[in-house]
Amino acid sequence: MQKIIFIGAGSIAEALIHGWVENNVIQPESVYISNRSNQQRLQQLSSKYGVQQLEGYEQLTGADLIILAVKPKDARLAMDAIKPFIEPHVSILSVLAGISIATIEDHLGERPIARVMPNTSATIGMSASGIAFNKLINDVQHAQYIQMLEAVGIVIEVEEDKLHAVTALSGSGPAYLYYLVEAFERVGTEFGLSKEIVRELMIQTIAGSAEMLKSVNEEPEVLRKKVTSPGGTTEAGIKALDAMAFNDAIANCIRSAENRSRELARGE
């Protein structure tokens, strides 16, 4: 792929650029980046990764792939702005939360389109991505996009409507885990431990637990019960979580994110 253009230069765009450049999936000189107004951000990414800054939309000519990576609220204006400059054969890879393939087709015309929801762990090759394709994606493009995303983590193909759930679970999921660690740090320091010690403990605890889920053929409930001795410290903690309706809080969190993704699809 000779020329890839990012429309938008936020955290997901940087995560993908970092992962792809680091893993030699793409050559930085073939990547162009743009955003609406933050020239300093473009200069930062250009200096850090060796990618090119898009000087104007006329440089969209000759693109092989355009990656839509703006904020969802800016998506429709951005698509309308670039439409006159995109050649009919150019395919689109969208990382826009909630913006449907049909909406992209309305603004950019019928063309090969893939929607993917990665997360920022693509930076370290650990993204969990969901992807959906329109009917104009051919077998070569399908394989190519899957390969590109597998270079920065795992990718699972789903029906487009299920991307709302993927967005809520794995797209937003890192933020919820970071929020959990913030809570552990706050209470850990109350007991006299330094934030650095608490963080080191929690990083290893989360990494170890994730590896157990990945490597051991047992359900999360079984693994939880193995840690939870009757009358012990873990049971006391679980009871406190139950008293605060922990499961309901998590369910509301995911449902709210999934619902917001659907609102963005409707332009709300």
Rank of each mutant, 00 (worst) to 15 (best):
E185I: 13
L201W: 12
E196H: 08
T205P: 11
T205S: 14
L177N: 00
E200K: 05
F184L: 14
L201E: 02
E185V: 13
I197P: 11
F184W: 14
S194M: 09
L193C: 03
K195I: 08
M202C: 00
A207T: 03
A183G: 12
I206F: 01
Y179S: 15
V181N: 01
I197A: 10
G192C: 08
I203R: 00
K195Q: 15
F191C: 05
Y178E: 09
S172I: 08
E182C: 09
Y179W: 11
K195D: 11
I197L: 14
Y176D: 08
I197S: 10
S172Y: 06
L193Q: 08
P174T: 15
M202A: 02
E182L: 06
V181Q: 02
I206L: 08
V198A: 04
I206N: 08
E200L: 08
A207Y: 06
G188K: 02
E190K: 09
S172D: 05
E190Q: 11
V181H: 03
E196R: 08
S172G: 10
E185A: 14
G173I: 04
G173H: 04
I203S: 00
S172A: 14
I206V: 10
Q204M: 09
V187G: 10
E190V: 04
E182F: 08
A183S: 09
V187K: 12
V187L: 15
A207G: 03
I206E: 04
V198S: 09
E182A: 13
A207W: 00
E196Q: 11
A207L: 07
G192M: 13
E190R: 11
Q204G: 07
S172T: 12
G173Q: 01
I197E: 11
A183I: 12
E200I: 04
E185L: 12
S194Y: 05
G192F: 10
L180P: 05
G173L: 06
Y176W: 13
E196F: 06
L177M: 03
E182G: 11
G188I: 00
G192K: 10
L180S: 04
G173E: 00
L201R: 06
Y178V: 11
A175K: 05
G192D: 14
E196T: 09
E185D: 06
A207P: 03
F191Q: 12
G192H: 12
L180G: 00
Q204L: 04
A175P: 05
V198F: 09
T205H: 03
I203V: 10
G173K: 03
E200R: 07
T189K: 14
Y178R: 08
G188T: 02
A207R: 03
R199N: 06
I206H: 01
S194K: 01
V181T: 13
R199D: 03
K195V: 12
Y179R: 14
K195W: 02
L177E: 02
A175H: 02
P174H: 15
V187Q: 14
Y178G: 15
